[in-house]
Amino acid sequence: MSVFYDRQDELEKYEFMLGEARGRLAVTLDVLTDALILVGQHGVYCASTRNPAVPALDLQAVLMNLNGAKELVASVMERLRLDRLELEKEAAK
Rank of each mutant, 00 (worst) to 15 (best):
45 Y>I: 01
85 L>N: 09
65 N>S: 06
87 L>H: 10
40 G>C: 07
45 Y>G: 00
41 Q>F: 10
65 N>Q: 13
69 A>C: 09
56 A>Q: 12
75 S>Q: 09
46 C>K: 00
48 S>N: 10
34 D>L: 09
50 R>W: 15
81 R>D: 15
40 G>S: 09
45 Y>D: 08
83 D>M: 09
43 G>M: 02
33 T>A: 12
57 L>H: 13
58 D>G: 00
33 T>W: 15
86 E>T: 05
81 R>N: 14
57 L>F: 13
55 P>C: 01
35 A>K: 02
67 N>L: 02
52 P>E: 15
62 V>N: 03
87 L>W: 13
81 R>G: 12
83 D>K: 03
57 L>V: 03
42 H>Q: 14
58 D>R: 07
59 L>T: 08
89 K>I: 11
82 L>G: 03
47 A>N: 09
46 C>D: 09
41 Q>W: 09
33 T>C: 06
42 H>S: 11
72 L>T: 03
86 E>C: 06
48 S>H: 08
76 V>T: 10
59 L>V: 08
38 L>F: 14
43 G>S: 00
49 T>N: 13
82 L>C: 04
60 Q>C: 09
37 I>A: 01
81 R>A: 14
88 E>T: 05
79 R>V: 06
72 L>R: 09
54 V>P: 03
67 N>P: 06
43 G>N: 06
32 L>H: 08
45 Y>L: 08
59 L>H: 13
54 V>E: 05
36 L>W: 11
